[in-house]
């Protein structure tokens, strides 16, 4: 909590004016939506039958869409809700990848292999 506050910068006066708990909550929301979407994306990719690189490209596309959606939800002013833009863009990116691969494999096997 302390470290995230320290890093935060306010546009107006360069002084951190963040509520740590709210920031944590916002990050949690991002994390959850990313995880959820990576699972959905995995199942989708598996059912459609993406193979190899196409699947990973699909994941990146979905994550990009998620980022755009999150930004739209934040009213395109991330400074109000997060300490930096990178949070919206990259948080939970790699964590979701494992879930994506798992559900991708699962759906792909069920639909296309057996």
């Amino acid at each position: 909590m302390g470290s995230s506050e320290k890093r935060s910068k306010d546009v107006m006066s360069d002084i951190p004016t963040f509520s740590g708990e709210n920031l944590q909550n916002n990050l949690k929301v991002i994390q959850n939506s990313r995880t959820f979407l990576s699972i959905i994306a995995g199942v989708l990719a598996g059912i459609i039958g993406f193979n190899g690189l196409t699947g990973f490209v699909f994941y990146f596309v979905v994550m990009l869409i998620t980022s755009v959606g999150l930004m739209a939800k934040a009213g395109f002013s991330a400074d109000l809700y997060f300490d930096s833009w990178n949070r919206v863009l990259f948080d939970g990116f790699l964590g979701g990848l494992m879930s994506f691969v798992l559900f991708w494999t699962f759906a792909y096997d069920l639909v296309h292999i057996f």
Binding site: K28, Q31, N32, T35, F36, S38, I39, G95, G96, M98, S99, F100, V101, L102, F103, T105
Partner: peptide, 17 residues
């Protein structure tokens, strides 16, 4: 192993953080 690592995200969704 794929399950072991990949289900972590699912758990954080269904069991809360």
């Amino acid at each position: 192993f794929l399950n072991l690592f990949g289900l972590r995200g699912l758990f954080s969704l269904i069991l809360g953080d």
